[in-house]
Simulated scan of single mutants.
Amino acid sequence: MIGKAFTYKAGAWLTAAFIMVSGETSMASSLRLEEPAVFAGQWQATLSAAGDDRQAQTQQDKPSNTCGVELRANQTLGEGADCLGAWLEQLPIGWFADPDGLSITGNEGSRIQFFSRQRDGLYLSTLKSGLIITLERTAR
């Protein structure tokens, strides 16, 4: 009787371990890392409050809440880096793709802001102040 109880308990543990290991493998394979060329080009950054309509913010003629940002294929930031830096309170130098988003880096190469992927061409990040920066690819 004790031998069967040990066998059932060991079987339950082995089954749970197998499910955990196979789940981690399938989760990791579902997130793909895009090539830098996919992100290279012109993007529009929009700064807004949590309750603001993003489209309405974009259509307003306020240079303080929108700016164009160039993500270069060599993973550096071009035009618009200073505008984005004013919101991040640190000058962004580069960027890199993450499986679930896009990271902006500072002069030491460390991440200063992460933008989570909402859909292709649309990424969001919330600042410590609660303001939201939206990165959206502009028409090619």
Score class of each variant (00 low, 15 high):
6 F>G: 12
133 I>P: 03
3 G>E: 07
76 T>N: 03
24 E>H: 08
121 G>R: 04
79 E>L: 11
118 Q>N: 14
126 T>E: 05
108 E>N: 15
55 Q>I: 15
61 D>E: 06
126 T>W: 11
100 D>I: 00
22 S>M: 12
35 E>I: 09
85 G>A: 05
74 N>Q: 15
24 E>K: 07
79 E>R: 07
61 D>S: 12
120 D>M: 14
137 R>L: 01
139 A>E: 08
54 R>N: 09
83 C>K: 05
89 E>L: 10
134 T>Q: 06
33 L>E: 13
81 A>M: 07
52 D>Y: 08
99 P>T: 01
108 E>F: 13
91 L>Y: 05
25 T>Y: 02
59 Q>S: 14
20 M>Q: 04
56 A>S: 11
115 F>K: 00
52 D>A: 14
88 L>S: 01
62 K>M: 07
12 A>L: 13
117 R>I: 01
123 Y>M: 12
60 Q>I: 13
5 A>C: 01
9 K>W: 10
6 F>H: 11
56 A>N: 10
90 Q>D: 14
41 G>M: 09
27 M>I: 08
111 R>L: 12
26 S>M: 01
131 L>E: 10
45 A>H: 01
2 I>R: 00
130 G>P: 15
19 I>W: 05
98 D>T: 03
12 A>F: 05
96 F>T: 12
26 S>Y: 03
113 Q>R: 06
123 Y>R: 09
37 A>M: 02
96 F>G: 03
78 G>T: 03
42 Q>Y: 15
5 A>K: 12
53 D>W: 06
48 S>L: 14
51 G>Q: 13
42 Q>K: 10
55 Q>A: 11
140 R>D: 06
55 Q>T: 10
36 P>M: 00
39 F>C: 01
118 Q>L: 15
55 Q>N: 14
50 A>I: 13
91 L>P: 09
105 T>P: 01
86 A>L: 15
22 S>E: 09
117 R>C: 00
13 W>N: 13
24 E>V: 10
111 R>A: 03
7 T>G: 02
72 R>T: 05
119 R>I: 03
35 E>V: 06
136 E>L: 08
